[in-house]
């Protein structure tokens, strides 16, 4: 479980996050939703120690500051939105960096097995010996997700992982995330913009608004007309299709 106590973050003199107290359950897919500028990405990078803030972050009953840097990178991993990768590495080399926290640069059999597994999880077999600077945006994104999978941390943070991906790959990545949460008891925390991906795939939803947490709870309790209206300031229709709540908001 991850607990956040009194998190405050300012950029210059502007509050970005104010007084965040939150606990994120283990073994679930957790979506962070909210309008642009609500602080989702900032919150994600604070929990994953990329950005500093006031307040305390406790991961599995231990303060984040008390973790050794290597230990922490086996505990949590993060993929940010802006991972420009103008570097000439093959896809497999990039993915093998995911094993760095475990084996440094001396990869053993187990590492290679995990790397190959991540490659086939992301359908990258046909690309694995290509240089990443020759890939499309979506392919790069998949390679990065594969690297995060190879890192094999307990908690996986993804900032808009579906960016650059077509519908087919978006759906297959969400399915994969659900699978690893179930089979390997990982915890996935992601920022999503498409409310229907949040609704269909997450167990738990945290909604941010105006620098604070507006709602946090099980997905089915958050995806309601009233709450969505409060979160996004717009009207939604919600239809139940095969047990999935689909939000309609285009008109």
């Amino acid at each position: 479980m991850i607990e956040l106590l009194n998190i405050n973050k300012k950029y210059d003199d502007k509050d970005v996050l104010k007084n965040i107290n939150l606990s994120l359950p283990k073994g679930k897919i957790i979506s962070l939703i909210g309008a642009n500028g609500a602080g989702k990405s900032t919150l994600l990078s604070i929990i994953s120690r990329l950005t500093t803030s006031e307040g305390e972050i406790i991961i599995d009953d231990k303060n984040i500051d008390n973790y050794h840097i290597t230990e922490l990178s086996k505990k949590i991993s993060i993929l940010r939105q802006s991972n420009y990768l103008n570097i000439k590495l093959t896809v497999r080399e990039l993915i093998s960096f995911g094993r760095y926290p475990h084996s440094k640069s001396r990869l053993n059999e187990k590492d290679n097995k995990i790397i190959d597994e991540s490659i086939s999880y992301m359908n990258l077999d046909y690309l694995k010996n290509k240089y990443i600077d020759e890939l499309s945006g979506g392919e790069k994104q998949r390679a990065l997700i594969a690297m995060i999978l190879a890192q094999d941390s307990d908690y996986i943070f993804l900032d808009e992982p579906l960016n650059n991906l077509d519908m087919k790959h978006s759906v297959s990545i969400m399915k994969l995330l659900r699978k690893i949460v179930k089979e390997k008891s990982k915890t996935v925390i992601l920022v999503v913009h498409d409310i229907n991906f949040a609704s269909c795939y997450s167990d738990y939803i945290v909604a941010l608004k105006n620098t604070g947490v507006l709602y946090a709870g099980d997905a089915e309790k958050i995806i309601t007309k009233e709450k969505l209206k409060n979160i996004f300031d717009m009207d939604f229709e919600i239809e139940d299709i095969d047990g999935n709540k689909i939000c309609i908001y285009y008109t």
């Binding site: 990329l50 840097i69 230990e71 922490l72 990178s73 760095y100 926290p101 640069s105 890192q151």
Partner: peptide, 21 residues
């Protein structure tokens, strides 16, 4: 330390994620 330097060349966030100082 070759791998460490390659990881650092990708960027600060990338390095932090992999536990590289």
């Amino acid at each position: 330390f070759a791998t460490k330097f390659t990881i650092v060349s990708i960027g600060e966030d990338f390095s932090k994620n992999l536990g590289v100082n």
